[in-house]
């Protein structure tokens, strides 16, 4: 047990997080999971191109939940947005990317 804990502590330095981490979200469960999975897919698919990733997320969400979604994918940015309630999802992914999804039409 102690040995495992020590191993974890040692590995913490180089551990790379690959899972999505929701920072702020008021979406309904189903939508949230959808958005999360979509972001993961998009970010993995376009790991070198955040713009395409954002576009993919936006267009897919538009199709699924109606138009006027906005998606920001980036590593470092700030934002102040107005969104329709129950449509925001702000999450981190892959340890260095932040994805902000909201809807406002």
């Amino acid at each position: 047990m102690a040995e495992e804990g020590a191993a974890a502590g040692a590995a913490a330095e180089k551990v790379i997080h690959t899972y999505p981490l929701i920072r702020h979200c008021d979406m309904p469960e189903e939508m949230r999971i959808e958005a999360m999975e979509l972001s993961v897919t998009a970010c993995e698919k376009f790991s070198q191109n955040n713009e395409l990733a954002a576009r993919m997320v936006k267009e897919t969400l538009d199709k699924k939940f109606g138009p006027a979604f906005h998606v920001v994918v980036g590593e470092s940015y700030g934002f102040e947005i107005t969104y329709e309630c129950t449509t925001i999802c702000y999450m981190y992914f892959g340890g260095n990317q932040a994805v902000c999804i909201w809807k406002c039409s």
Binding site: H17, L21, R23, H24, G74, E75, S76, Y77, G78, F79, E80, I81, T82, Y83, E84, C85, I88, Y90, Y92, G95, N96, Q97, A98, C100, W102, C104
Partner: peptide, 17 residues
């Protein structure tokens, strides 16, 4: 509608993770 604002930086993401 509601407003939300935040700032994401590598350090913030790292800390949160």
């Amino acid at each position: 509608r509601a407003n939300y604002g935040s700032t994401c930086l590598q350090s913030i993401i790292f800390d949160f993770y």
